[in-house]
């Protein structure tokens, strides 16, 4: 891929990823965030983080479909960092709007409510990944250790999905589409590895 194409594409991805944030800022400034502004901020940041996490997880299996898609890998870190960005805004919403920065109220929330616990768990799993996203960190850790550490994206994604299910009311099936997408993305990995092994065997025989 040409450098200029890459820069153009990255610009487009940046802008697309900032759309939900722009929507919130615009809504906050014009007092146009819908009937329940606080819930709108919490839902938009949370859902953006969730779906961007799904896109991040889709990059690796999709690029393996064809050699022509290998360039997709250059967008994985960018997407991953946007997941962290929206997750951070989501946590900040919880800290500021839902708990008024009160330590007592936060502790109460984390210990009493399992969906908050699962959400916090997700964020703690994402944190080391964001911190080791720089080239310097990759060099310092070494490729193997870095890969091992970044395997945490899988428990993070599962934890986020559990957070979503526990957040909605009993009987509400709203998280089902996301869960299905995530399931496909997680199953794609062993299935692709298996078919690769099979092809390798077929060639060697």
């Amino acid at each position: 891929m040409k450098r200029s194409t890459l820069i153009a594409l990255k610009t487009v991805v940046w802008i697309a990823c900032l759309v939900p944030f722009g929507f919130l800022v615009w809504g906050a400034v014009t007092n146009n965030l819908g009937p329940d502004a606080t819930a709108e901020i919490a839902n938009t940041t949370g859902l953006s983080a969730l779906w961007m996490l799904a896109i991040t997880l889709a990059i690796s299996p999709v690029r393996r479909l064809s050699v022509h898609l290998a360039w997709l890998i250059r967008f994985r870190r960018l997407m991953g960092l946007f997941v962290f960005y929206y997750a951070s805004l989501h946590v900040l919403t919880w800290l500021a709007l839902y708990n008024n920065f009160s330590i007592r109220s936060m502790l109460d929330d984390v210990t009493k409510r399992r969906f908050v616990m699962a959400g916090m768990g997700t964020y703690l799993l994402l944190l080391p990944l964001a911190l080791t996203s720089t080239n310097w960190a990759i060099r310092k850790l070494g490729g193997k250790n870095w890969t091992r550490l970044h395997w945490l994206i899988y428990p993070a994604a599962i934890c986020a999905t559990i957070h979503y299910w526990w957040k909605v009311k009993t009987g509400v099936l709203e998280p089902a589409p996301y869960t299905l997408v995530l399931l496909v993305l997680l199953l794609a990995r062993p299935v692709m590895a298996w078919s690769k092994r099979r092809r390798a065997r077929a060639v060697s025989v």
Binding site: A28, N31, T38, A39, I41, L97, D109, R113, K169
Partner: peptide
């Protein structure tokens, strides 16, 4: 179990 009931958000006001 999902929400603290100590406070509430009044609909229609800024966040």
């Amino acid at each position: 179990p999902r929400w603290s009931q100590k406070r509430e958000r009044r609909i229609g006001l800024p966040f």
